[in-house]
């Protein structure tokens, strides 16, 4: 059976590190980085990319529209 895999791309420099996406993701895909961006925020990044299903919840909750979501079917 084809398994759905997802991925997100976060605009690191525009992310304000509010953490709403981290809180929202049921699969613990995201985390706030220890590093800061040019604005001094800790941007979110995929800490567990293998868990992402591409459900878009993180992008839907993101107030700054910095998340792009991808979804693909894995062919086995």
């Amino acid at each position: 059976m084809a398994k759905v895999r997802g991925a997100v791309v976060i605009d690191k420099e525009k992310c304000k590190g509010c953490g709403l996406c981290v809180e929202t993701c049921k699969f613990q895909v995201l985390q706030l980085s220890q590093q800061v961006n040019l604005k001094g925020y800790n941007p979110a990044f995929m800490v567990n990319p293998q868990n992402c299903t591409g459900c878009t919840n993180c992008a839907v909750i993101c107030p700054d529209a910095v998340i792009t979501v991808y979804r693909a079917k894995e062919n086995e």
């Binding site: 895999r5 997802g6 991925a7 791309v9 525009k14 304000k16 590190g17 509010c18 953490g19 709403l20 604005k39 925020y41 591409g54 878009t56 992008a59 839907v60 909750i61 993101c62 107030p63 700054d64 529209a65 910095v66 998340i67 792009t68 979501v69 991808y70 979804r71 693909a72």
Partner: peptide
Amino acid sequence: IIKEENIVFKKTKLLNDKPLSYCPGCGHGT
């Protein structure tokens, strides 16, 4: 996975690329 044809969510074109002036996590942006 990260390919143009696999995009399921991206920012609407009617919002431009300027960083929103709101505080982190503010509902205005949403």
